[in-house]
Nucleic acid binder design. Structure first.
Lengths: 329, 329
DNA sequence: CTGTTAGCGCTTTCAC
DNA sequence: GTGAAAGCGCTAACAG
């Protein structure tokens, strides 16, 4: 910076002002400084800048699994907005593990990030960050009561998807679900129940089957579901479980949708590539990411009222070939 | 840090040494300091640390498209190693645009990252970073001659895939490809040619069809390929183009593999979900990412001889149901 | 509008 | 093995 100042014949502080601040520098000087900086290939040091100004443009993003297209899309949406707004994304995979999550949060804290977007695993993580004065936006799910969040309306989406199946005459729909601790799973289960209730049908609790979070477990659980319950349709609570369900249906060569219907929450690309294409609920995942980033930046810039803000993104039912009229026996 | 020093009854410099350096602090003092830090919830400030020590643990990762599972897997592999080794990943999507890429590189430079892993779009980007003393590893493709790189053996993979098709009796294989400027596309094309040559068959140049990088364009190009060339098999140069090719084959209700075979470079999850599952070349993408990170860290730690290191990851042919004997007319 | 001064929080000489 | 002092590169406060 000294060099640039000398080259432009001004003081270091003027260089700083000319390069970054708006105002407080005459246009003529500003131009001269910028030319000098260009000529010398000067790149300002973010570290020093952040240290002195006690601000940072880096944003931490904490997600569970980048290889799951849901999280990849979420991260892509976040990154798009951050980049456009001149921020940087520090991305950490926590593998859904509370300890990894907390450890990552501490690192982000040490890095003095301006804010964090997290798909929380444990409530302790957003809380710790907030207690340390870091802005936090929970994306996709919500834990504890504090803080801003961007959420999909899981209940409405699951209700709509279930109504679609009920409308086709299915009464025994197996719900394949991995967790209901979080607002996502809980919401989807609630929507499933609500649709049955609205239809005036009693829901057999045995139709709700819990499985682990990976496709292989879902395949096994689907097997049990088919063996033990007489279902005419399967509703998978997310894209990963749907892989397992579909694999088992294909293994048994059950014709879809003639013999059995399959619907899945969370639209991802492969669902329109398989034959028949899968009926799903599109969560607008990239938008979910964009909104999370926008909300966080608005909070950082202090453009929002103090009380917490919850942004809800409406999901959309996408009917494709995998769901059809319930077979009559 | 002052507070911790006071709490532990030592000087700030001792706190620094006790917390981070190995040696230069008595075990007894070290323990006392750590206890004090714990009690006060002290989190050291990375910015100040990096500024003073002129080192940073942040690593920049520059990729083209996070929503493409190839890049997502690459990033996941990189992140896994970086996190394990106590580094942070700053992830930037450059959308395959040289200007975005260069802009991102400048930001990373300003952030004083310890190194950058890039799937380069233009040779200028790695060069600029290297000129500024930043360690660079090119992942997946190579541009210009400088620098370390982790590459898949595209030629071998494409050759093996083509040999597989030739072995099934296909002689007119349409190669659907988007670019050959980069080492990836060039290598795959070279492998395709080599297989024909090894088989002693003359390659009709019209079988090589160029398309844009998105699935929709690939669909249209596949249409032209089917209309204008008599092909019994299609080989798609990557996972995205394969989506377009498959969509068009399905639209025409061409039976796979009876009527036409489809093979694709770059195995991604949907390829084993569709019916029939797609024959592919698995690039071990996550490993590619892991190796890139390991190579970069080794370079940063100065564990490598000065001359550049190229790591090659061997791809693997995965034969599935989408390829079968060529139909006889 | 611009220069001077001080100092962000930490690590690293250099004495002791 | 430990403390005191200096300073990383920059920006904010203050004069002018």
């Amino acid at each position: 910076m000294q060099d640039v100042a000398r080259e432009a014949g001004v003081s270091p502080s003027t260089v700083s002002r000319a390069l970054h601040t708006r105002g407080y520098a005459s246009p003529e000087v500003r131009e001269r400084v910028q030319a000098a900086a260009q000529r010398l290939g000067y790149v300002p040091n973010h570290m020093a800048r952040n240290l002195r100004s006690r601000t940072s443009t880096a944003i931490g993003v904490l997600i569970s699994d980048l290889r799951n297209p849901f999280y990849a899309d979420l991260a892509a949406g976040i990154e798009e907005v951050l980049r456009f707004e001149g921020h940087q994304m520090i991305l950490v995979n926590d593998n859904g593990d509370p300890e990894e999550e907390m450890h990552a949060a501490e690192t982000l804290l040490a890095m003095q990030v301006a804010g964090v977007i997290v798909t929380p695993v444990a409530a302790a993580c957003p809380k710790m960050l907030q207690d340390n004065g870091i802005h936090v936006v929970s994306a996709d799910r919500q834990l504890g009561r504090g803080g801003d969040a961007v959420l999909s309306d899981n209940k409405a989406g699951a209700r709509e998807l279930t109504e679609h199946l009920l409308g086709l005459g299915h009464e025994r729909i197996g719900l394949l679900i991995d967790e209901t601790k979080w607002s996502t799973g809980a919401g989807r289960l609630a929507g499933f129940r609500a649709a049955y209730e609205d239809a005036g049908l009693e829901l057999d609790e045995d139709l709700i089957v819990f499985t682990s979070f990976d496709a292989e477990a879902a395949k096994q659980t689907t097997r049990e579901l088919l063996d033990e319950q007489h279902v005419t349709a399967i509703l998978s609570a997310n894209n990963v479980l749907a892989q397992g369900a579909l694999a088992e249906l294909k293994r048994r060569r059950l014709r879809i949708p003639n013999k059995i219907s399959l619907a899945a929450y969370d639209d991802v690309p492969w669902m329109s590539l398989v034959q028949p294409a899968i009926t799903t609920v599109d969560q607008h995942t990239v938008d979910l990411g964009r909104s999370s980033a926008q909300l966080l930046l608005a909070r950082i810039r202090d453009e929002l009222p103090a009380r917490r803000r919850i942004v809800r993104v409406a999901p959309r039912l996408v009917v494709r070939g995998s769901t059809g009229p319930a077979p009559r026996n």
